[in-house]
Design a protein around this nucleic acid. Structure first.
Lengths: 244, 244
DNA sequence: TAGTGGTCTAGACCACAAA
DNA sequence: TTGTGGTCTAGACCACTAG
């Protein structure tokens, strides 16, 4: 029943097989999973491979494990789509809520960054940045205001306005040959000011969730920073914490 | 130089040893770490053990790894204290920002929960909850308003007002014999209304970050839920995302 | 005491990146 | 081509929980 094949990652296949069974209700929330040795025998893989799969499920909160007691299914599996973890793209976030994403407005300019941006990107005083501002719509309703700042010097190829509608990380890979390996985001609550309210189609004073992010390449060099303002109705952020 | 001993978790010791060297500047941000085989030989452990240690460092964003290229130190190690991950306690959050935590105000009551709370805790219609409301201070300044909801039936021992000043998870372990194994939190921006503003010593309309949390025990039963309102100045939440 | 998950080893092979 | 990290195995022993 496992249909585990060589080729794909074995642990990923085991993980997906377990996930699928949970979706089908074969294992229900609160129930205990078979022991690792049984699973290893069932799938025809080593116990270490099963453990890798279970570790992934545990990290995302789908199962809870306790030494001596067993592995139990949680009902958190239902929340998997709205996780804060692994979010790299505004349009994916919107899709995760079951809406159709689009870009409703876009403008860009090349200019000298303000002091804070300059420091975040570790730029020399006279270095320019490309600033891209957009509003993302979910089923036609504005939900996210995004401002991306990219060091001008990184951009090696010429681009068009359409290229800027892409995710900043995709843009960086294509036009700067830079890959973001990690980012650091700071979360803060804020309220919409006049221009933000106008662009997001809400009234001034509406609460917004601000993500202040800086992305780095493998060499730990900052390659972009972004300010993302999320409307409360637009995106739901969930955090699942589990402990041993 | 490693001083790895039997007894403690080997992988934890390796992890700490590497962390310590990074703190001492022995490995600086942007630098490459020695290959896994070298580290294994240096510490006198197997490569799998080294990999477990590196996986932990990678997950928290302290290092970035790429197949074929190597393992690199990031500068994100400096942010380790303000992580959203692993936050289970308001006072710890406040300490993480270098402030002294205290409880500035506390009130509690036993009552019937509203419909939303009842559903979150999966309670029968007539079941009571213990509601505890407190305000946490950071160096004397109010920063977090916390409301905890605990099913009354879970509480087996009698308690005093002082017991309620504790972390809800510590309270549950002591007075209900229940351990929280994971929680699900939803983040949302909001603004202070009249009473909230008064308790938090801010003006009405001040932006706040709301955590709407539900905690579960190992059997996937909800054992408490909480509404946490954070002032922007009070707590800094950072999220570090890394990708393979 | 039996059975569970947690840790560790030694070795193998593969995929990928850089010189 | 060389060296890196990524995956997988088979087996061992330990720590904890429950009956």
């Amino acid at each position: 029943m496992a249909t585990i094949e060589r080729g794909e990652l074995l642990s990923k296949q085991v993980e997906e097989a377990l996930r699928e069974r949970m979706r089908q209700g074969c294992f229900s929330p609160g129930e205990q999973l078979p022991p690792e040795n049984d699973l290893a025998a069932t799938f025809g893989v080593s116990r270490a491979t099963v453990r890798a799969a279970l570790a992934n499920l545990q990290r995302e909160g789908t199962v809870v494990r306790r030494q001596g007691a067993g592995t139990y299914v949680t009902h958190a599996a239902a929340y998997l789509d709205s996780r804060l973890e692994g979010m790299w793209d505004c349009e994916d976030m919107i899709r995760a809520r079951g809406c159709e994403p689009s870009v409703g407005w876009l403008e860009y300019e090349e200019c000298l960054p303000d002091e804070q941006t300059r420091r975040k990107l570790r730029l020399q005083p006279a270095e320019n940045v490309l600033v891209v501002r957009k509003v993302f719509l979910a089923d036609g309703q504005p939900v996210i205001h995004c401002a991306d700042f990219i060091p001008r010097a990184l951009i090696g190829k010429s681009f068009t306005r359409d290229d800027l509608a892409k995710n900043v990380f995709a843009f960086l890979e294509e036009f700067a040959g830079e890959r973001a390996t990690y980012y650091v985001a700071e979360l803060a609550p804020t309220v919409a000011d006049g221009s933000m309210a106008q662009r997001l189609g809400c009234s001034s004073g509406t609460p917004l969730l601000l993500f202040d992010e800086v992305a780095y390449n493998i060499k730990d060099r900052p390659i972009s920073c972004s300010l993302l303002h999320h409307r409360r109705e637009g995106v739901l952020f969930r955090v699942v914490q589990s402990r041993p």
